[in-house]
């Protein structure tokens, strides 16, 4: 399949990109890595008049510390998440998730901001922004704004992004020495979409969990925090009984959709298995 004809514009600045979008009457798409957008265009699931290439906008690049957060530029490629020392030091959960994102050649092109903007419910990084309590930095026709990841994901491939807005960066609170994280997913083949995936970040005093954020993907229309399980763990040390309580809480936290391939009960079972494994690793100091 070939994409429908469109015009192409390479923007040098955010303002140029936003301006081009407005001039196209919002019948336009921003393209960065394009690893999901290009197939969507080729399959004609989308057919905009104008494609605005944002990959040459310097303002969208780079990873840096900014106060007590790490600012991850939207154009940071998945492969850079694996190699960038600041990510490993201050956002190790993202480093742990990165090898699971698609295949090497896709990781060479795909961008962090693009993945978050697409909000594929089976993707690793959008879900991890929830676990990390990240903030999404957005530029648009009416100026810039920042939004909590908790308020960003609305429904299937639907986010709080308005037409003509683009993600400029994601801000992640710096990882601290009293925090622990864990990540894993269950997939039939390496690099394939996960049947169920999960990442978590816990803040502890000694062995006691003061706060924990647990986010699942491939469990519904959006990446999903499991607040019942989080509550079941908060204020306690991890032991078999606490882990079982958190697993039991998933029955209320998750409502996997009907699917021929993976029935809801199976997905829920896999989510419980995965949660148990990850909490076990967290307890061992992973």
């Amino acid at each position: 399949m070939k994409a429908r004809a469109f015009s192409y514009f390479r923007a040098d600045t955010i303002d140029q990109a936003l301006d081009a979008h407005a001039r196209a009457g919002d019948d336009a798409r921003f393209i960065a890595g394009g690893q999901s957008l290009v197939p969507a265009l080729s399959l004609r699931l989308q057919a905009p008049r104008l494609l605005i290439d944002i990959t040459h906008i310097a303002e969208l690049r780079g990873v840096c510390r900014e106060g007590d957060t790490l600012r991850i530029g939207a154009l940071t490629r998945h492969c850079e998440m694996l190699t960038e020392p600041l990510i490993a030091a201050f956002a190790p959960l993202l480093r742990a998730a990165a090898p699971f994102v698609a295949h090497p050649a896709i990781r060479n092109r795909g961008t962090f901001g693009g993945s978050v903007a697409l909000a594929d419910p089976a993707s690793e990084f959008p879900a991890m922004t929830l676990a990390l309590d990240a903030e999404i930095e957005i530029a648009g026709p009416s100026g810039s704004r920042r939004l909590k990841a908790d308020d960003f994901f609305i429904d299937l491939f639907e986010t709080a992004l308005q037409p003509g807005e683009l993600i400029t960066a994601v801000h992640v609170p710096l990882f601290r020495s009293n925090q622990r994280f864990a990540f894993d997913e269950l997939a039939r083949r390496r690099g394939d979409y996960a049947l169920v995936g999960c990442g978590m970040l816990a803040t502890q005093t000694g062995d006691r969990i003061d706060d924990i954020r647990i986010s699942f993907f491939s469990v519904g229309n959006t990446p999903t925090r499991v607040k019942g399980a989080e509550t079941a763990l908060t204020g306690f040390s991890l032991d078999a009984a606490r882990i079982a309580a958190a697993q039991a809480a998933l029955d209320n936290d998750l409502a996997p959709p009907e699917s021929d391939e993976v029935p809801p009960m199976m997905r829920l079972h896999l989510a419980r298995v995965l949660l148990g494994r990850l909490l076990g690793r967290l307890g061992e100091g992973a």
Partner: peptide, 13 residues
């Protein structure tokens, strides 16, 4: 210097 899918980008990019 990086392997990429040439079907997943347009030549203009």
């Amino acid at each position: 210097g990086r392997s990429v899918h040439s079907c997943l980008m347009f030549a203009v990019q």
